[in-house]
């Protein structure tokens, strides 16, 4: 019943997946993962290494197809849709290892993101140049605003591949934000960045929640999860082990053995 308490019975679910499985060369990376992501909340996806977290994100975002199971965004069945169609429904993702568009500038990385740009049609480029220009100006203005918020404004004309690891993480999040997402999947947004930046990224994620964006993030740092996440999903061996508030999960012996035990012990002793 911890589930019910944590999210409240009236919550709307923005993303649901049921019985997802995925095998690589016979090894089951995901084996029946089933969970829901409440709308407007920050949900953490945690679990030991090899639990299949990234594979689940890849399936949800359409980068991979699942062997079985279903995925819904809102009430739309998006099972095994290609990623660009899922993205058009408002689901944006970041990657565990940053995948910036290296030859494009930081600003251009953001400008690629908006959906349905009139300037992406050959007909508009030649027949409606003023419309193309107007939308482009709006996009540039909004992109510069986002870059300023994320502290990348001064780097806007640098090629993205020249950025540092932490800056690339910020770029990925801001690129996702530029696409006006309803749901943002962040694959370890704070891995390998310094503590000050972890703090900042945590703040950005809370701001996004305040603006009504739902966030699902893979995260190993339980202090962060404790601070910003409303809801936690524990994945182990490709299955959903438990869901609920982190404080409740800490009392769950199964979760402690599978994952939390070592982490909690490690963090209390350090």
């Amino acid at each position: 019943m911890t589930d019910q308490e944590s999210r409240g019975s009236s919550d709307e679910m923005i993303l649901t997946c049921e019985g997802l499985t995925k095998a690589f060369l016979g090894v089951k990376a995901v084996n029946g993962a089933t969970f829901e992501v409440p709308k407007g909340k920050i949900t953490a996806l945690i679990g030991p290494n090899g639990a299949g977290k990234t594979t689940v994100v890849n399936i949800l975002s359409g980068a991979m197809t699942s062997d079985s199971g279903t995925t819904h965004i809102g009430s739309t069945d998006v099972t095994n849709w290609p990623s660009y169609k899922i993205a058009r429904l408002g689901l944006m993702r970041t990657f565990q290892l940053s995948r910036e568009l290296g030859d494009l500038t930081v600003l251009e990385n953001l400008l690629v993101a908006p959906k349905h740009q009139p300037g992406e049609s050959l007909v508009n480029i030649f027949l409606r140049p003023s419309l193309v220009k107007r939308v482009e100006c709006e996009n540039v203005e909004r992109a510069l605003g986002i870059l300023q918020t994320y502290g990348l404004y001064d780097l806007r004309d640098n090629r993205a591949r020249e950025l540092s690891g932490g800056q690339k993480k910020l770029l990925e999040i801001s690129r996702g934000v530029m696409a006006s997402p309803t749901l943002l999947l962040l694959d370890e947004p704070m891995a390998g960045v310094n503590p000050a930046l972890i703090e900042r990224i945590g703040g950005y994620i809370l701001d996004l929640k305040a603006q009504g964006v739902t966030v699902l993030m893979i995260e190993h740092n339980l202090n962060v999860v404790e601070k910003i996440c409303d809801h936690v999903i524990v994945l182990a061996e490709g299955k959903t082990l438990a869901t609920g508030r982190l404080s409740d999960l800490r009392a769950n012996p199964e979760v402690v053995t599978a994952y939390l035990g070592e982490v909690i012990n490690a963090s209390t002793h350090s």
Binding site: I14, G74, S75, T76, G145, T149, S180, P181, T182, G212
Partner: peptide, 16 residues
Amino acid sequence: AARAGAEPLSTVEEGG
């Protein structure tokens, strides 16, 4: 700045 522009769920369904 930072107009993330989250849209209501209804537009999601329209897109679908």
